[in-house]
Amino acid sequence: MKIFLSLILAFTFAFAQKVAVIDVEGMTCPLCTTAIKKSLKQIDGVSNAKVRLNTRQATVYFDEKVTKKQLLKAIEAVGYKGKIISIKTE
């Protein structure tokens, strides 16, 4: 039984989805949101990304293998600066 529970926990941990909220500097128009979203979604392991102009924030859904550095680099690659505010596991 213990082995079984451990396996379930390990499985859940391995496939847990993480959610990062990132402040993004430099967005000036609605098109900026699409550029950032597309760049974030190109990362292997990012399942979804929502970017909002009014809050200047990106919400990114990703798995364990994605690093903070990758997320910030993807934002930087399209000309913006990101700052991670929070990361939660869902």
Partner: peptide
Amino acid sequence: TQFPLNMLGYPYGEIDDEV
């Protein structure tokens, strides 16, 4: 979904939250 709009000299279109 995205606002405010910088200007409306062009057509503005959205599919879900994508511009």
